[in-house]
Design a protein around this nucleic acid. Structure first.
Length: 358
DNA sequence: AATACGGGGGG
DNA sequence: CCCCCAGTATT
């Protein structure tokens, strides 16, 4: 038998959350909710999608920008997809933005503009997986849904000293979260667990002395908490090479292209590049340029993706007129409004240092 | 079950 | 600086 009766974990965690929860733009504090103020499902959903694989700090300005541009889910559903991609640029994992738009459209057309209020109903929508469905159901609709993200995995794996490695141990961890999730205030419990993982039960050097669960934690009692969660060995990233071409025409405009709709950086904007597997063993980069010009090398951009490292040789050319090429010519002044992912901003900045200055 | 998919922050 | 972190969809 575990030392801690299940209700105790929820009681301790909720008491801690009442005192230490973070104020966030999409969050309704326990005190305000006590006065009848409900969380806005659109805000909760938007923030949770942005928070997938992404830190609170990075999300904040994007969340505000999206709400200013599209105050209601029906506004987002009616928006121009290119505008949504441009607004998302820099946040990463761009399939999230494509699915965000699809989800808003589904809510608007199939659900009358009202989000489903059950975990299963939410789970059926584009871009909403196990985590987001449970989070929105618990936080926005007060459903007793067990929310498990990376923070919760860490807290749970330490609380029960789970030595099985991730990702195989996920079902076991999920069963533990189900067992401790209370019927009362499940949304606050979920947010409290995630806040605890983000601020106290951190990956390195956890602040166990400040933890409300330190009396129940088996890892603290019997092991080194930092050892948990145990993870399967990771493999090394391959390196891919390529070249990027920043062309500036006689009117101070830069040649841009649209990437194909799916796959890496799908639907985003780019400057012309070679493919990203090319070795430098046959021919030179400029043979693959969009057109003949006086291409000048201006250095290399290194960008690390999840599963490979990209080294882009950047070339620049200033033209007297406008060359004929696929894509479009964008004034340097409006480059900041384009759906340019970070790697492309890096490449353009290397070629035109002041390109993104205000 | 394994892989594809960005970017930011901390030690 | 290198190392680590973290959901969903697809295959």
């Amino acid at each position: 038998m575990p030392q801690q009766p299940e209700p105790l974990v929820a009681k301790l965690l909720l008491a801690w959350y009442d005192r230490h929860h973070r104020e966030l733009p999409w969050r309704v504090s326990p005190a305000m909710r006590g006065r009848g103020l409900r969380a806005n499902p659109y805000h909760v959903w938007l923030s949770e999608v942005m928070l997938q694989q992404t830190t609170v700090q990075a999300v904040k300005p994007y969340f505000q920008k999206f709400l200013n541009l599209w105050p209601k889910v029906t506004d987002l559903a009616a928006a121009n997809t290119d505008d949504v991609m441009a607004a998302w640029a820099g946040l990463g994992y761009y399939a999230r933005a494509r699915n965000l738009k699809k989800c808003a459209e589904a809510v608007a057309t199939e659900h009358g503009g009202i989000f489903p209020d059950t975990e299963a109903g939410l789970r059926a929508l584009p871009g909403i997986g196990d985590y987001t469905a449970a989070a929105v159901a618990a936080i926005a609709f007060d459903r007793q849904a067990a929310v498990m993200d990376g923070n919760v995995e860490r807290v749970i794996s330490r609380l029960y000293a789970i030595s099985d490695p991730l990702p195989g141990a996920k079902p076991l961890m999920k069963s533990k979260v189900v067992a401790v999730t209370p019927a009362e205030r499940p949304g606050d419990f979920a947010q409290g667990m995630m806040d605890l993982g983000a601020t106290i039960c951190t990956p390195k050097r956890p602040a166990c002395a400040l933890c409300p669960l330190n009396g129940e934690c088996l890892a603290l009692r019997d092991h080194d908490p930092e050892r948990f969660p145990v993870k399967a060995a990771k493999k090394e990233k391959p390196v891919r090479l390529g070249a990027a071409f920043v062309a500036v025409d006689g009117q101070g405009r830069v040649l841009l292209r649209r990437r194909t709709a799916s796959g890496l950086l799908g639907g985003m904007t780019e400057v012309p590049t070679t493919d990203w597997t090319s070795r430098k063993d046959g021919g030179t980069d400029v043979e693959h340029a969009p057109f003949r010009a006086d291409w000048q090398p201006c250095g290399t951009v290194v960008h690390v993706f999840t599963h490979f490292e990209l080294r882009l040789s950047v070339y620049r050319a200033h033209l007297n007129a406008t060359a004929n090429a696929d894509g479009w010519w964008e004034p340097v002044e409006t480059l900041g409004e384009q759906a340019l992912p970070t790697v492309m901003k890096k490449a353009i900045t290397l070629a035109i240092p002041l390109a993104f200055q205000p």
